[in-house]
Design a binder for these strands. Structure first.
Lengths: 204, 204, 204, 204
DNA sequence: GAATAAACGAGACGGTACGTCGCGTCTTAAG
DNA sequence: CTTAAGACGCGACGTACCGTCTCGTTTATTC
């Protein structure tokens, strides 16, 4: 019926070799002195094979660096703060890969000029993270830990922002304690303080 | 005594004209389609004069983008939360310049490869902001709003991180309300929760 | 057997278009205000394609200026003096091209520093001209016009020297009469003088 | 009367040091990789002092290379051929200086673009050499060796041409024998052959 | 002797061309 | 129809040199 299409099929090994070479080179030389020809040579591949798969250098880097960000479902710890803590840890693990440490800054740079890339990021990474935050909040609301209307986008910024700043801008060491503190900060921000709850429980 | 130095001195007007041209061009065409020749032409200057001052295109851009970050003293509003709000606004004003919106992502990218640049950023921008945060906290402590030991670096991350993420990564609109919310979040994180205050009012 | 060589082959049209553009530009603007970018633009070619063929601007110019010096066999007029006249005319035609008038002085300059270039000139142009002179002399000898041992290199200098001096050093107009006179001078120099012939007519 | 003019007078040492540096550098690196800044450094002099004396790099080189070409009167040997031989030797001595071997090719190159330079050369070097040739011919005519009307310009080309070609184009060794042969060739060309004189003494 | 005026070393300046490098496309022959 | 190899057009890069200009200093003549 449908002939699997004529001609030589694409080589699956290339689909793996190229992103691997990209990550290796990113870790070695960074994004600045990073060349498509180098990637081709390293992967033992022609440039045409690369450009048949990726529309541009930026796309190639982006697709190669964040190749398996399907983080799976958010672990349910039973309490809001530790759920947040788990999510933050998950995000951190994605960002602190050797390849990601150089690819994400490059991605940030590329985003300023490339609207398509920006849209794609919004639709995939951002959407998925917002969904995760929303899920956590809904679970907390179901448990009565949280009011029904929380600003999910704000929460997302409070979670990712400090991580991005620490990792990619100020290049500070990011330890467990910092993740705890960020989680606690978000928790405090999302939950009405005891004081408010005690003082005016009916105002809401 | 010691002759100031032989030869024709550097032209002061160029020292101003080049960064101005850089900022204008960054705002107009972005970092991607940004040319040293364009800068030279715009500034009415030869390329040699530029490369005599900056080692590379990147250095020129970064040195030009953050030209007057000496934001002066932090306004004292009398209350911690509004002090934080003012500081956040200050930081935001620096970052939301047309030139900065395109230069800072490029700077972030460059930081991953250039240790010197990283040090320079740490010693200037980061140090100055940490000092600002510290000053605000000390004033709050003097007023009795704050415990004596607060994590200034954490506070700094909580302030700048969400701004950076919103402006440069997710390209979200940053309005007054968001600045309010960030300030509130930092305030909540720094101050002991009501609950704790209620539980141990005499510890002060 | 041996694969002709991998990859895209050099474009033959460029091999012709570039020298043509060089000659056109040399004739138009001279060697002084002559730009590689202009050549590239005129030939509809990238600079890389040029530098893939020629190691430098100078190489490109010289290789382009003397593109078809294979002047074919020397015309046989049946008499030594008119043979010489024909050869001188041939040499003059090569040197008085618009392109050659500006390229050859530059070539002369380059020869002082570049041994390789010098060798190449010796092996091609000089060798070919010496062969021509030798052929003419041998024909004359066969006809009995000439003694058997003539100094071919001297003859060559006497032919080309005045042309070079007139065209490239003193920039004098070179008309038919001058060519006649040079030919006559060489003829006189090569042939035994009448005096000698009168004195010893039987030596032949 | 004429005040020797106010202000600091020009430094005589510079007038000597610069041409000396030019000749040294020409001999060392040739004209191609020859820099005005190098000359200034070598002579221990500022560039302004150079450009106050010479209008351009080409002028400087030209004036420095042929600085003492006042060859004095032509020796009178009593016979035309040896007079020619002496003149050729004089010309050769000028051209075969280490500095001249690189400066003259550069001068030849410069002549194609610079009309002023060409005029200057014509008015000085060429005029002086033509005068020399003319003087020799007149002496020969007075002695009865020569007819009254000889083509002085042709003679000049026949003298200088082969020298220029040998020295600057083909870079052949120029020995005493070659000078002899050139002199003989010119002699033959200038003097009517015995045959002609014998055959038709009255045709002239 | 002070003022003037030109020349000096040093080196920055505008301009222009150089030769290199990278991107993304195209063109071969081979599979 | 894909592949490896590599040439292609384009365009920016950073360097080099020219000839000019500005400094502060030095050296002579003129008031």
């Amino acid at each position: 019926m449908n002939s699997p299409q004529p001609g030589r099929p694409r080589d699956d090994r290339i689909d793996h070799a190229v992103p691997a070479a990209v990550r290796a080179l990113l870790a070695e030389v960074g994004y600045g002195r990073f060349t498509v020809d180098q990637v081709a040579a390293r992967a033992g591949v022609g440039k045409a094979a690369i450009y048949r798969r990726f529309g541009s250098k930026a796309e190639m880097v982006f697709a190669s660096a964040v190749h398996d960000v399907d983080t799976g479902p958010v672990t349910d710890t039973g309490r809001l703060e530790s759920d947040l803590r788990a999510l933050i840890c998950q995000v951190h693990d994605i960002m602190d890969t050797p390849a990601a440490r150089v690819a994400l800054p490059a991605l940030i740079e590329a985003l300023t000029a490339d609207d398509t890339l920006r849209e794609r990021l919004t639709d995939t990474f951002l959407a998925s993270e917002l969904a995760d935050v929303r899920e956590i909040c809904e679970r907390a609301h179901a448990r009565g830990e949280l009011a029904d209307h929380v600003d999910v986008e704000l929460a997302h910024l409070l979670i990712t922002g400090p991580l991005i700043a620490a990792l990619f801008v100020f290049h500070l060491p990011v330890g467990e304690q910092l993740l705890d503190e960020i989680a606690h900060s978000v928790y405090l921000t999302l939950t009405p303080t005891s004081c408010e709850r005690l003082a005016s429980p009916e105002t809401r």
